[in-house]
């Protein structure tokens, strides 16, 4: 995945070698330098092992230590409840990412390009939810669309029917979008600020209509921001737990499933296996996204 940006970019450059894996200078250094280098790398290696590799390996080992053995890792595919939990988590996270990017881009571009009284207050308000834990977000969703919620009251007054969707995927989706927007909007605004206004003027001078300027110049230039903000948004939605926990125990997203397996059923091996799979799926999804966008990101840089 890491070669995506570099490799496809280098393809057009005849002078640059694509095979630069082994650094020649490293091969040329003598034994003493190698020893010295290893010594200097050791602290980093120790910390990396202690806080990353060892726990991860342990988690992986625990996943295979249950009654089912290593097939626990397959349970995410073979167990229908686990599979549906994984699928709905991925779909939810994708939907949250897409909707958040759309809203945050529109709002971020507007806020970056317009100066009006109260603008900085609005920006501050928009970034307010950054500090909220998932529980608070869940609480807010309940107050909005729960049994005693605002939406329920208004819909009852209008139609006689009480509209309640807080305790479902819809409520969770709403909560996730709400806490994702501030993260994305700040990245989009920072990126939009760096756009060269001359690029848009050049496009317009060539006859491009406003929507064409947006589609051909502005959005491609924001692509790196979309990618990094989208990645964080997706990963956060995949792993978020507090909101789902507050809203209902019946919402089957993977973090909830892991919690249920772990605490209620003391099924530690399954919980560990599912955790590992959750991490892996998220990592693969992000790697794929980066790979797809690789060449165009390099070009836009």
């Amino acid at each position: 995945m890491a070669t995506g940006g570099e490799g496809s970019g280098a393809g057009a450059l005849p002078l640059r070698s694509r095979r630069g894996r082994t650094t020649p200078s490293l091969r040329l250094t003598g034994r003493r330098e190698a020893v010295l280098l290893a010594g200097m790398l050791a602290p980093a290696a120790v910390v990396f092992s202690a806080f990353f590799l060892v726990p991860l390996a342990r988690l992986f080992a625990i996943g295979g230590s249950g009654a089912a053995g290593w097939s626990a890792y397959l349970s995410v595919l073979t167990n229908p409840a686990h599979l549906s939990s994984l699928v709905s988590t991925v779909l939810l996270s994708l939907a949250v990412t897409a909707v958040t990017l759309a809203i945050a881009t529109a709002a971020g571009l507007f806020l970056e390009r317009n100066r009006f009284p109260g603008r900085s207050l609005l920006v501050a308000l928009l970034t307010f939810p950054l500090a909220f834990p998932g529980v608070v977000i869940g609480f807010m969703v309940i107050m909005l669309a729960g049994r005693q919620g605002l939406v329920g009251e208004v819909s009852r007054a209008l139609t006689g029917e009480r509209l309640v969707f807080a305790y479902s995927m819809t409520g969770l989706f709403l909560g996730y979008v709400y806490f994702s927007i501030p993260r994305v909007i700040l990245t989009v605004m920072a990126s939009a600020e760096k756009l060269d206004p001359r690029l848009e003027e050049a496009a317009r001078s060539l006859g491009a209509r406003p929507w064409q300027v947006m589609a051909h110049v502005v959005l491609p230039a924001l692509k790196p921001a979309f990618l990094s903000a989208g990645a964080i948004c997706f990963a956060t939605a995949m792993g978020a737990f507090g909101t789902a926990f507050t809203l209902a125990t019946r919402i089957e997203v993977l973090p909830m499933t892991i919690y249920t397996e772990f605490t209620l059923q003391a099924n530690i091996a399954t919980a560990a296996a599912l955790s590992f799979v959750l991490g892996l799926v998220t990592w693969v999804a992000l790697a794929l996204a980066r790979n797809f966008a690789g060449s165009s990101v390099a070009a836009a840089g």
Partner: peptide
């Protein structure tokens, strides 16, 4: 008329070429 309807050619100091 806005610039997109004037049919002018423009060259900038910063080139302003589309990087994508």
């Amino acid at each position: 008329l806005p610039i997109e309807r004037r049919n002018v050619g423009m060259v900038f100091q910063s080139y302003a070429l589309f990087p994508n």
